[in-house]
């Protein structure tokens, strides 16, 4: 199934050669407006080129699809894709453009390229950028982007959902899948990699070692909203939590936390300030409780086991005493 959708994409990318002249307006509208949702399937929108998404909707006939596109649906399709400036004919042309992609998907004519990815704003952009150009060259950038860039999340290292492939780390706002590339403000935002220039690196999260960054004075974030000179009250107290099995014990350092946080952020709502009073499990952390209130959301994620589980147990000693008892 996925294979077929890959075919759909490669073919859809190569297709404009045939239909571009008649389809320029519909394609432009798709690239500018529809693709915001229909490229990735936001709000359960049928995805461009995914025949499986479209077939149940096509059962009601294309007239029904036109009507839904023009008037919107309760499921989340806004009338005219949220842009009332489009004429009815333009919206219909955009629907036709999307339908053409899935109709052709049924009869694949080209062999699937290995790394065709989901159509996303980035992939749609080169097509939109050159609507007047001859169709064949316009299709070429799509294919190169597809092979050079990252694969969708399901394809690479799907066994480890916390591990991000290289091409998908720290994307600039217009390409990050969340920001709207059609918004002028999006392009004014600082790309993460620019902001992180010169900061020490880590292997997860933002891939910035924030503790080292603040420790080595690479950054000096304010402790007070208005007073740049205010200094935190740092408390240097390690709490050791013994854990089951052979996993190293957890050392919780107050020092690194009080560099950033106030006591009241954690105590007493999240952690009762008494040793042994807090039942913590990895399950609750993964679900966003206890340490998981920050770790896994904004502080380093739980894939970095040894940053917390850092005190090695002396496993050799019990074995020795057992051997000694046997003598």
């Amino acid at each position: 199934m996925r294979f077929r959708s890959l075919i759909a994409f490669t073919f859809a990318a190569a297709l404009p050669a045939a239909s571009a002249l008649a389809d320029v307006s519909g394609k432009d509208i798709y690239a500018k407006t529809c693709s915001v949702c229909h490229a990735t399937g936001i709000a359960s929108a049928p995805r461009y080129g995914h025949a499986g998404d479209w077939s149940p909707r096509l059962a009601g006939g294309s007239a029904r699809l036109y009507a839904n596109a023009l008037k919107g649906t309760a499921k989340g399709m806004p009338p005219k894709g949220g842009n009332p400036a489009y004429s009815d004919a333009e919206i219909k042309a955009a629907v036709d453009h999307m339908l053409a992609a899935v109709k052709d998907a049924a009869k694949p004519a080209t062999p699937p390229k290995p790394a065709a990815k989901d159509a996303e704003p980035k992939a749609a952009a080169p097509v939109a950028a050159a609507p007047a150009a001859t169709p064949a060259p316009a299709a070429a950038p799509v294919a190169t982007v597809a092979t050079a860039d990252a694969l969708p999340a399901g394809d690479v290292n799907a066994f480890n959902r916390l591990l991000k492939p290289v091409g998908r780390r720290n994307p600039p706002p217009p390409e990050d899948g969340i920001h709207d590339p059609g918004n002028d403000g999006t392009h004014a935002l600082l790309p993460p990699l620019t902001a992180y220039a010169g900061l020490p690196k880590s292997f997860a999260g933002n891939r910035v070692n924030w503790v080292e960054a603040i420790g080595t004075k690479k950054i000096n974030p304010r402790w007070d909203r208005a007073d740049p000179a205010a200094e935190p009250v740092v408390m240097d107290l390690n709490i050791v939590r013994e854990v089951k099995g052979s996993m190293p014990d957890v050392v919780y350092p107050h020092k690194q936390h009080t560099e950033w946080l106030d006591c009241s952020n954690c105590h007493p709502a999240i952690f009762i300030p008494q040793k042994g009073a807090n039942a913590i499990s990895m399950a609750s952390i993964l679900l966003g409780e206890k340490c998981g209130v920050c770790h896994g959301k904004v502080a380093f994620p739980v894939s970095e086991c040894r940053l917390c589980h850092s005190k090695k147990k002396d496993l050799a000693r019990p074995a020795q005493t057992a051997a000694g008892a046997a003598k």
């Binding site: 915001v36 949702c37 936001i42 709000a43 989340g76 806004p78 949220g82 959902r161 916390l162 706002p173 969340i178 920001h179 709207d180 918004n183 002028d184 403000g185 999006t186 004014a188 935002l189 999260g205 952390i285 993964l286 679900l287 966003g288 998981g292 896994g296 959301k297 904004v298 994620p301 739980v302």
Partner: peptide
Amino acid sequence: NLCHSAKPGTKTQVHESTIQKL
């Protein structure tokens, strides 16, 4: 538009969080 910059229809969430991935 500097803050109101997400794609319309994006749900409230912390992106890339473990809870979201679970």
